[in-house]
């Protein structure tokens, strides 16, 4: 197997893993706020988080490129203070990927939290437990299928990401050239055998992840 092929797959895995880890950390607090708290403009926040489900990836990619440009505030701030350029870099693609995968992590977590009876939380509070203890000891253990779904869907979605990556990262081997872009590239170059190898691996990974999700959902816990 040639080194380029392996590097592309490793880069794809790296991007999907980092995106999933970052979203797992920031996704829980956001899902908790959306599930249990009422605040001003909550519907707008929910709509913004769900936008990647309906928005063409190129739209987000375009706005990310605009934001990263040193001619604009965010890009200029990064260039001046950190000497960093995000357009056409792995970090730039990673940030875009995190934003684009937000709903895949947050929606299952939010659904998991809201499906737990309110009386569980309230009982824990009357037993003197803080919101944090209740979250760790009562809520998380009772929403494991939702956590698996959220993590697996985010990972699977990242593996298949194309539009955002090509807009923000282009096609730089070892930096931004992930498997989905490599397939497109190999087909353009009429290297159908390599395109087939990439496609087959992505097909198998996606199938395994979705099978895992459906088998977990089949064993969903019954509260009563």
């Amino acid at each position: 197997m040639n080194q380029d092929f392996v590097n592309t797959l490793l880069l794809t895995g790296r991007l999907a893993s980092w995106t999933t880890v970052i979203l797992f950390i920031i996704g829980f607090p956001i899902a908790y706020l959306l599930a249990y708290k009422r605040f001003f403009l909550k519907a707008v926040v929910e709509a913004l988080i769900s936008m990647p489900l309906v928005l063409p990836p190129t739209v987000l990619g375009f706005y990310m490129l605009v934001a990263y440009s040193p001619q604009n505030a965010f890009g200029r701030f990064l260039a001046e203070h950190f000497n960093t350029r995000l357009a056409f870099s792995f970090d730039g693609v990673l940030i875009a990927s995190v934003l684009f995968s937000l709903p895949f992590m947050i929606q299952p977590l939010q659904n998991g939290l809201t499906s737990i009876p309110k009386s569980f939380r309230e009982t824990a509070y009357t037993l003197g437990k803080s919101e944090f203890t209740t979250f760790i000891r009562v809520l998380i253990p009772n929403m494991i299928p939702s956590i698996v779904t959220a993590t697996a869907m985010t990972f699977a979605h990242c593996i298949g990401e194309f539009g955002v990556v090509i807009m923000v990262g282009g096609n730089m081997p070892g930096e931004t050239r992930v498997a989905s872009i490599a397939i497109y590239d190999e087909v353009q170059a009429m290297n159908y055998q390599t395109a087939n190898q990439y496609s087959f691996i992505l097909f198998i990974i996606s199938l395994l992840i979705l099978t895992l999700i459906y088998s977990m959902n089949g064993k969903k816990k019954i509260f009563f």
Binding site: P117, S119, F120, E122, T123, Y125, T126, G128, K129, S130, V138, P141, N142, K221, I222, F223, F224
Partner: peptide, 20 residues
Amino acid sequence: VPPQRRNVGYMFQDYALFPN
């Protein structure tokens, strides 16, 4: 005073036993 500091035993109609 929040529920955590009232120290009441509250039994819900659904019992709210933690399944985990």
